[in-house]
Design a protein around this nucleic acid. Structure first.
Length: 281
DNA sequence: AGGTAAACAGGCATAAGATA
DNA sequence: TATCTTATGCCTGTTTACCT
């Protein structure tokens, strides 16, 4: 338990896998570079949930850092397909613990070690976690940033670097997201006139007995942004900063639909994962 | 079917920030 | 410092769901 608490403090990031841009090399988000060891090690160890390790080269290209040689082997061994989520927990030296979340939103164990005793180094591989526990673990992965409520952190997150926006992958789904497959509470929305706020439909809140804090993280293929809770005279629940999601994903009115998946920990929503479906309205 | 309440979109006013 | 732009809270009208 205490071990898990320590783990939560480790820096982490997530990305959506897109074969088009990530089959040969994999870009580490620019905003994560401040956490990387200095000087940058030549290689990194990727620890899969199946208990195996992969060594990959870490290469600095222009202003970014990429996993290069060895990454394609990792991707192949994990049978990564477009749209799957990867989370990376960094130990501060050269090891990344990588978790794979399938398109159904569940954590998956892949590239397993055959008939080998688990050495206990990975809390993910004990094989005892139930569905709900896995879901909570996913929540905790995105919960890593415990300073969510601090103004400084929020303002940084709200205004990401332009470079980050243009260089990272997009989580756009071209109209083929299987909505029924989403296991978390979700709702769809479109680009409204009032783009600064995202309204959480009251029926979704009620049906799922959801609660909200003062902020949520918006998660799209570009990374995360923090939206502060809006204050309204009525009881509606809405979050600000939504316009940045709309803008950086170039949402179009009367064309695009956004499926918002509410990631929660014991019904308290901490993040909203954004699935964009082009040309569906 | 009609009345009522809840939910929601969007207009308006204004505060805050940016820029000349 | 004045002006313009952006962001946000309040308010109101419309739509929808529910109850009688």
């Amino acid at each position: 338990m205490a071990e898990h608490d320590d783990d939560v403090l480790l820096p982490r990031f997530f990305k959506v896998f897109l074969s088009e841009s990530a089959s040969e090399s994999f870009a580490i988000p620019l905003s994560f570079m401040e956490h990387l060891a200095d000087p940058l090690p030549n290689t990194a160890k990727l620890q899969g949930t199946g208990g195996r390790d992969w060594t990959v080269n870490m290469t600095k290209i222009r202003d970014g850092v990429y996993f290069t040689a060895g990454w394609s082997k990792f991707a192949q061994d994990h049978e990564l397909v477009d749209g799957e989520f990867l989370t990376f927990v960094y130990d501060g030296h050269r090891t990344f613990e990588v978790s794979v979340f399938g398109r159904l939103g569940c954590k998956e164990t892949r590239a397993e070690v055959e008939a080998i005793a688990v050495d206990g180094s990975s809390s993910d591989s004990d094989g005892s976690s139930s569905d709900s526990e896995e879901e909570r673990e996913l929540s905790m992965d995105f919960y890593g940033d415990t300073s969510l409520g601090e103004d400084e952190e929020i303002s940084q997150s709200l205004y990401p670097l332009e470079d980050e926006e243009t260089e990272s992958d997009s989580a756009v789904v071209e109209g083929n997201l299987d909505i029924e497959a989403l296991t978390n509470p979700h709702f769809s929305t479109t680009l409204k006139n009032r783009i600064y706020e995202l309204l959480i439909p009251a029926n979704v809140v009620k049906e799922n007995k959801l609660t909200f804090g003062d902020s949520v993280k918006y998660i799209d293929g570009e990374g995360t942004l923090v939206g502060l809770r809006g204050k309204w005279a009525d009881d509606r629940i809405c979050f600000k900063g939504w316009d940045r999601i709309c803008r950086r994903n170039r949402l179009k009115k009367h064309q695009d639909t956004v499926e918002c998946e509410l990631l929660h920990d014991r019904n308290k929503v901490h993040s909203i994962r954004v699935h964009i479906m082009r040309g569906t309205t």
